[in-house]
């Protein structure tokens, strides 16, 4: 494998403000990571896309609504269809929902306030590419920082047991079933309100977020090794 594997890109929207933290976290675990501007294109050799937190387009109209309608969205959809991994964090999660890639809606916190603190979460599903380094039911700590993070279930989420990846340990924003993070059916897209990229060092409160990126890194590495293995067997 070349030195540039696995490769990750962080999509930078006007108003993204967690893009640098995401890039730092990706590089920290070993990704060859770079920013991708919304007027540019997703690389053909990219394994993981991160849609970072922030306030894309000022979150005017609805959170994530304008960003979800950028031309790069069709490239993101194609990337997803090819089985590429996508993590949408906070505003990135809101954008994935507005794109229709993930079901439900994210509305204003039931308290009416912006909430910024470290919260306890439960890992509901550890059989995804993003959570393989966690135990099922493990309690972890990640920061949240959002005004519109109340997850509301809709008909699109047919069986929430299969889609929920993270739950809040206690009610923080009024979300249905304490939902903090969900995946699509194929489990190659993760959307979550908490910020794993802000929890990479114990020094600043928690390093539980590290394992989200390590899981993805490991998943990409092992699936490519399996592919190589299969190819070798095929040749033999």
């Amino acid at each position: 494998m070349t030195a540039s594997f696995p490769k990750a890109q962080v999509v930078v929207y006007p108003g993204s403000n967690c893009d640098r933290d995401a890039l730092w976290a990706l590089r920290y675990v070993g990704f060859d990571a770079e920013f991708v501007d919304i007027r540019s294109h997703i690389g053909s050799d990219v394994n993981l896309l991160v849609l970072p937190g922030g306030f894309s387009y000022g979150d005017y109209l609805r959170v994530g609504a304008v960003a979800a309608r950028e031309p790069i969205s069709s490239e993101i959809r194609d990337f997803m269809s090819r089985g590429g991994l996508i993590i949408g964090i906070c505003n990135g999660f809101q954008i994935l929902i507005e794109m229709g890639i993930l079901p439900g809606a994210l509305l204003q916190n039931s308290t009416g306030k912006f909430i910024c603190k470290i919260v306890e979460l439960e890992v509901v599903d550890n059989e995804t590419p993003f959570t393989r380094y966690f135990e099922r039911g493990e309690k972890i700590h990640l920061p949240i920082a959002h005004g519109f993070g109340r997850y509301v279930k809709t008909n699109g989420l047919v069986n929430s047991q299969d889609n929920v990846i993270f739950r809040y340990a206690q009610d923080v924003n009024g979300a249905d079933e304490l939902i903090a993070g969900i995946s699509n059916e194929n489990k190659n897209v993760l959307g979550l309100m908490p910020h794993p990229e802000r929890a990479i060092e114990k020094l600043i409160g928690s390093d539980d977020g590290l394992r989200v990126f390590l899981s993805a890194f490991n998943y990409i590495k092992t699936s490519s090794e399996n592919m190589l293995q299969k190819t070798k067997v095929g040749v033999a």
């Binding site: 509305l107 204003q108 916190n109 039931s110 308290t111 009416g112 109340r150 509301v152 009024g174």
Partner: peptide, 13 residues
């Protein structure tokens, strides 16, 4: 308008 079954914290406040 939000649908009637959707909570509206701003309106409540």
């Amino acid at each position: 308008q939000y649908k009637s079954n959707v909570r509206d914290p701003r309106g409540e406040m």
